[in-house]
């Protein structure tokens, strides 16, 4: 693979960066580098956990759940990292997903948790 097809992804809010190939989605690129800059959910565009905002750079996306990314939000650079292919270096912000807290989880507060 030529160097042109590898892009640098800077995650500003986490002060981290990782490399991602053009044929990889951002989340897969991140996981392959053992980085922990974006939260990982279903990896299929459905759950919303890896919701990010892309601040600079060019990219393409696969179809994403409109429950998490509306057309208007997509215009404003919001996306699910599991569905984004980089076309240039990107600057992004992660942690744009707000999870509702269930009592199932509240009951679990005192227990050890793996992330």
């Amino acid at each position: 693979m030529s160097d042109q097809s590898i892009h640098q992804i800077r995650v500003l809010n986490r002060d981290q960066s990782f490399e991602c190939a053009e044929d990889q989605v951002l989340l897969v690129g991140m996981e392959r580098h053992n980085a922990a800059a974006i939260s990982v959910g279903c990896r299929g565009g459905g759950c919303g956990v890896c919701r990010i905002r892309i601040l600079a750079g060019e990219y393409e996306t696969k179809r994403m759940s409109k429950a998490h990314i509306s057309d208007a939000e997509q215009q404003r650079g919001y996306a699910l990292a599991c569905r984004v292919f980089p076309r240039t270096d990107l600057e992004i912000e992660s942690d744009h997903y707000q999870a509702p807290e269930s009592s199932y989880q509240q009951a679990a507060v005192a227990q050890p948790t793996v992330k």
Binding site: G41, V49, Q105, A107, A108, Q111, V114
Partner: peptide, 20 residues
């Protein structure tokens, strides 16, 4: 709860509980 859900790990898995 950890053991109730995953009997061997006995710790909660955040993704299992929250990803829907």
């Amino acid at each position: 709860l950890g053991k109730a859900i995953f009997y061997h790990d006995r710790v909660l898995n955040d993704r299992f509980l929250t990803v829907l």
